[in-house]
């Protein structure tokens, strides 16, 4: 699989309160949850590294952040994005839709949890979760990275 070409992956974020965490985020924003990811950035909870620093900083990990509703029709795209993501990589499920299907748990079109498709490192509950919940969830990655 060819590496994923995305300018988003050239940016490095620090997670507020967790200086050891340096991440690149591929945000698959599929529904309202995506707004909370943006809110985490504007609230200063996810801090973008200065570009001149960012270029030389190695990402500690690439994060595939699924924030929103995944339909079965869209599932192959999620799998492709995951497979194309460079190591070290982790997948984070943000919100009820990504976790289990959430409000759409009984819909015939919605995937009942993206952990059916790719391995998840962290599940963040909420509908949508608060921006602070995103930070608390990303903080769990500190342990994941050390183990992996």
């Amino acid at each position: 699989m060819t590496p994923l070409q995305s300018s988003a992956l050239e940016r490095r974020f620090r997670v507020s309160g967790h200086p050891q965490l340096l991440i690149s985020v591929l945000d698959v924003g599929l529904a309202c949850c995506a707004l909370e990811v943006g809110a985490a950035i504007t609230a200063g909870l996810l801090v973008l590294e200065e570009p001149e620093h960012s270029a030389v900083l190695e990402p500690r990990m690439n994060v595939l952040l699924i924030s929103g509703t995944v339909t079965d029709a869209l599932a192959p795209g999620i799998i492709r994005a995951w497979e194309a993501l460079d190591e070290p990589r982790v997948a984070v499920s943000f919100g009820a839709c990504a976790n289990t299907g959430g409000p759409y748990w009984d819909a015939p079109t919605v995937t009942k949890g993206i952990d059916q498709l790719i391995p998840m490192s962290v599940y963040i509950p909420g509908c949508p979760p608060r921006p602070e919940a995103l930070i608390a969830g990303l903080a769990r990655l500190a342990g994941v990275g050390d183990a992996g």
Binding site: T71, D72, A73, W105, D106, A107, P108, T109, K112
Partner: peptide, 23 residues
């Protein structure tokens, strides 16, 4: 082409006779 459903599914799901399988 189908939009959201997999082609193998049975009755159209929005018909009232179609029960929600998940339920």
């Amino acid at each position: 082409r189908p939009l959201l459903l997999r082609a193998t599914l049975g009755r159209p799901p929005m018909l009232k006779e179609s029960a929600l399988v998940a339920r």
